[in-house]
Simulated assay, not measured.
Amino acid sequence: MSIADNTFSMSNMYDALPHIRFSRGISGSSIPPPGFIPRASDTRLNPLFNLMTSGEGVALFKDMISKLDRRQLHTMASLLTSDSDYFTEVVRNKHGSRRVQKLLGISDDVDALFHAAILRRFLHVMTDKYASYVARRAMAVFDQTKKYAMYEHILHHALDIARDQHGCIALNEIITDADDPFYRNQMLDVVAINALCLSNDASGNFVVQHVLKLYDLRCTHNIAANLRGHCFELSFKKYGSYIVEKLLEAEGSMAVVVEELLECEGERLMRLARNEFGSFVVVKALRVTQTNRIDLFWDLVQKLMPFLHLLRRSHGSSIANILEACSIATR
């Protein structure tokens, strides 16, 4: 059966399920081996696989499954989840992911099957571009017991998820939408405790940035504490500088960053001020202290003023403008 033959219709839906149920079964020798990807020539699995992953009839799928009875829905979910490799291939497909999401939250017994399938391949699901949407949808519709099990898996795999290009996005969404205070705080604590390694990671830094944007005072304080002594070096990096700027915006962590900058020798601070990314950190430090901590502001000005002539001809030109304004004001 080709994909073209597997058009979306109610008759195809009803015809496909018993055909697959008869020829493949849910266990035994007919289950495909690990790494198996259904092919057009494999008539045992193609009807359901094509039904889930074909680009045709996307708008009709939700209406179609609404007309299936409980037994048919359970059969469909059983076939989709009875083999982990098969399930993973479906949810990694753009259309397969969307259709599995439509099947979530319909009934407890169907959710139980998908819940078990997701947990079996949790890290693979959470770090895939399309499969991760299935996990995020599951967190929204599963009952409390199933959610708690997923939270536990998130905490266990948090670092691996955060350091993946797709996983970091999924983790950010789950943290934002977390409706359980205990697990939300647990996830924030994992990010805070591992703030240094995440801040230096190409994907993990986005999780730290995201968490800081939630303006959770306790978490921001803990991140600042764990980055104390590392803000200077982070400021030389594109994404690291974003994190340091976020810390400067928070009243509770602003002093931590500024005091670290003031501890630097004048030439080291000048080198940061002339850096492509570090210059933004120094400008932010000057602006927030001028508003909130005038004593720290003048300490920074005094330390930077000897290098005014060097700052004019570099990325530090904005800093030079602030220093020149201070010179005029004190004359």
Score class of each variant (00 low, 15 high):
Gln72Ala: 01
Thr291Val: 13
Leu104Thr: 11
Ala149Thr: 04
Gly278Tyr: 07
Ser327Asn: 14
Ile31Gly: 03
Leu272Thr: 08
Arg24Phe: 07
Asp299Pro: 13
Asp83Arg: 06
Leu296Asp: 01
Ala255Ser: 14
Asn200Gln: 07
Cys197Asn: 10
Lys62Ser: 09
Val190Phe: 06
Tyr14Cys: 14
Phe142Leu: 15
Asp63Ser: 10
Ala285Phe: 06
Asp108Ser: 10
Asp295Trp: 06
Tyr130Asp: 02
Thr145Leu: 15
Lys213Pro: 03
Leu261Trp: 07
Val258Pro: 01
Arg274Thr: 15
Ser317Met: 12
Thr7Glu: 12
Ile319Pro: 03
Glu265Arg: 07
Val256Asn: 03
Cys219Ile: 15
Arg99Pro: 08
Ala192Cys: 09
Phe277His: 12
Ser23His: 14
Pro33Phe: 10
Arg44Ala: 13
Leu296Phe: 00
Arg98Asn: 09
Val141Leu: 04
Ile294Gly: 08
Ala178Ser: 14
Ile243Trp: 08
Asn46Pro: 00
His166Ile: 15
Ser41Asn: 11
Asn321Phe: 08
Ser29Glu: 15
Thr127Trp: 00
Lys102Gln: 01
Ala202Cys: 09
Met254Cys: 04
Phe206Tyr: 13
Leu234Asn: 00
His74Met: 13
His166Cys: 15
Arg70Tyr: 01
Val301Cys: 00
Thr7Ala: 15
Cys168Pro: 10
Asn275Asp: 05
Ser11Leu: 02
Val125Leu: 06
Ser66Ala: 10
Asn93Thr: 05
Ser327Val: 13
Asn6Ala: 07
Cys264Tyr: 02
Phe232His: 04
Ile223Lys: 00
Val283Thr: 00
Lys94Cys: 14
His315Ala: 04
Ala40Met: 14
Lys303Ala: 04
Thr43Ser: 12
His156Pro: 06
Pro181Ala: 08
Leu248Lys: 07
Ser327Met: 14
Asp69Val: 03
Ile294Asn: 11
Glu260Lys: 03
Pro33Asn: 09
Ser78Asn: 03
Ile294Trp: 13
Phe232Arg: 08
Asn226Ser: 09
Ala195Gly: 02
Tyr86Val: 12
Thr220Ser: 00
Ile322Glu: 15
Tyr215Ile: 12
Ile328Thr: 13
Val90Lys: 02
Ala192Gly: 11
Gln290Lys: 13
Ile319Ala: 04
Lys62Cys: 00
Asn321Gln: 08
Val282Trp: 03
Lys94Asp: 07
Gly167Glu: 10
Leu80Val: 08
Leu300Ile: 13
Val91Arg: 10
Asn205Thr: 04
Ala224Lys: 12
His210Pro: 05
Ser66Asp: 01
Tyr183Phe: 12
His124Lys: 10
Val258Tyr: 04
Asn50Ile: 07
Met10Thr: 03
Phe297Lys: 13
Asp69Gly: 07
Leu113Trp: 11
Gly96Ala: 01
Tyr130Arg: 01
Leu171Thr: 08
Phe142His: 15
Glu324Asp: 06
Glu267Arg: 04
Val91Gly: 01
Ser41Ala: 13
Asn226Gly: 05
Asp128Ala: 04
Met126Val: 07
Arg70Phe: 05
Ser27Asn: 14
Ile154Ser: 07
Val283Cys: 02
Arg70Gly: 05
Ile31Arg: 03
Asn222Trp: 13
Met126His: 01
Arg92Val: 11
Tyr239Trp: 06
Leu198Tyr: 05
Leu323Ala: 12
Ala77Glu: 02
Ala225Cys: 08
Asn222Cys: 11
Phe236Asn: 09
Ala325Asn: 15
Asn200Trp: 03
